[in-house]
Simulated scan of single mutants.
Amino acid sequence: MSQPIRKERIAIYPGTFDPVTMGHMDIIHRAAKQFDRLIVAVLNNLSKNPLFTVEERTDLLRQATADIPNVEIDSFRDLLVNYVRQKDAQVIVRGIRTVTDFEYELQNASINHSLSPTAETIFMMTNPKYSYLSSSVVKEIAHFGGNVTEFVTPEVEQAMKLKFNRNADEV
């Protein structure tokens, strides 16, 4: 008797990633171990005023994840559940830092489930050393010339220096 063909397990990790932080990278590394393919999907959120363009964010993510073979970087501008269906994914991965994150993400997961009952949302608790870290905090630190080395990858740090017109040795 032949074995049934196992469907590829695909997960989507959506976010703005403006910029991608070490907290995001922690979730990406851990989620990539759980699925056959992890699609890190940059949301083109029209209601936000991002520091980096969608193209810049996807490029920075490609550089940061180049060593993870089952991670794919993409972008979307649609309802998340439509994107999940388009990619034939089964799971949405969301990182949780705080109780406030959980309340917000639970509401989104409930809405997504009502729109697409086959898409499951999995919450991954952030590594405690990144529980305080957000893209907004990193941008503020960089804007005022603070050192962001421990919060982002070297490529992101360099890109932020260029955005804030700082010399490479200033921050």
Rank of each mutant, 00 (worst) to 15 (best):
H29S: 08
A89T: 05
R166S: 14
P69K: 11
R97K: 12
E120K: 06
P14K: 07
A11T: 05
N49A: 15
D169K: 09
E56F: 13
I27E: 00
D169A: 09
I27V: 01
V93Y: 07
M22F: 11
A89Q: 02
V20D: 10
F123N: 03
A31V: 00
V93W: 07
S134Y: 01
K129F: 03
K48G: 04
E157C: 14
N70W: 02
S47A: 13
E105Y: 04
T58H: 00
D74F: 03
N82C: 00
H113W: 12
I68F: 09
G95Y: 10
L60D: 08
I141H: 15
N70C: 01
E120L: 03
Y13H: 05
L162G: 07
V138C: 05
I12W: 09
R6E: 15
I27A: 03
E8S: 06
E72G: 02
V93T: 06
V93S: 08
M125W: 08
F151H: 02
A31R: 00
V156S: 11
I5M: 13
L162Y: 04
F123Y: 01
L162R: 11
I10P: 02
G146I: 04
H29D: 08
R37H: 14
E55P: 11
S110H: 10
V84A: 03
G15I: 02
